[in-house]
């Protein structure tokens, strides 16, 4: 399988994610993260997981990004605050050390494992099979996910709704 597009996608996604996480401007960070989510969708396309790629675009680029941007705009006092105040230096160093250690362990483990990986074409698993699996074997899981989503969204509405004044009936 051709790895050149994979490396390109990976580098773009990692770069946008890193810049987003280090950024000063919240809106720029959010938009860069959207680019990185789109990069992940491109990876899914490369891995022939069409349905998941489009679901990723629909949910992350269309949905989650909107929620994030609305939250950014709803939780600021003035434009000056959009430029986030400097985070503490020692905290950043500690986080970098922890993250770097985890990354080192993971990379070491991956590189020392002989992974051949079969390259059989997954053509047999198309959208139709996915639908049948979801509605048949995994119907219970689908129902539970539906309930989780409903409860979570109701909870989010309750949390975000303004509280009534104290003397309200």
């Amino acid at each position: 399988m051709n790895t050149a597009p994979l490396i390109l996608i990976a580098l773009t996604t990692l770069a946008t994610a890193a810049v987003a996480m280090a950024g000063r401007n919240l809106i720029h960070s959010a938009l860069l993260l959207v680019a990185s989510w789109a990069g992940i969708a491109a990876f899914y396309l490369w891995a022939a997981a069409e349905f998941v790629a489009f679901a990723q675009i629909l949910i992350y680029v269309g949905g989650v990004s909107m929620v994030v941007l609305f939250a950014v705009l709803l939780t600021r006092n003035s434009r000056a605050e959009l430029a986030i105040s400097t985070d503490s230096f020692s905290r950043a160093i500690a986080a970098l050390l922890a993250g770097g250690a985890v990354f080192g362990i993971l990379v070491g483990a991956i590189l020392r494992t002989p992974l051949t990986g079969s390259t059989r074409s997954p053509a047999a698993f198309n959208v139709r099979t996915l639908g049948l699996e979801l509605m048949g074997t995994h119907a219970a899981a689908l129902l539970i996910i539906g309930i989780i989503l409903t409860v979570a969204l109701l909870g989010a509405v309750v949390l975000a709704a303004p509280e009534p004044p104290e003397d309200a009936p």
Partner: peptide
């Protein structure tokens, strides 16, 4: 010719919202 063409159509359509936000901001 896409297996999940309808999903693709609405995914690309949903992404246009982001451009409108960019324009406004």
């Amino acid at each position: 010719e896409l297996d999940a063409g309808v999903l693709y159509f609405f995914a690309a359509g949903a992404a246009t919202e982001l451009a409108i936000f960019m324009a406004g901001w």
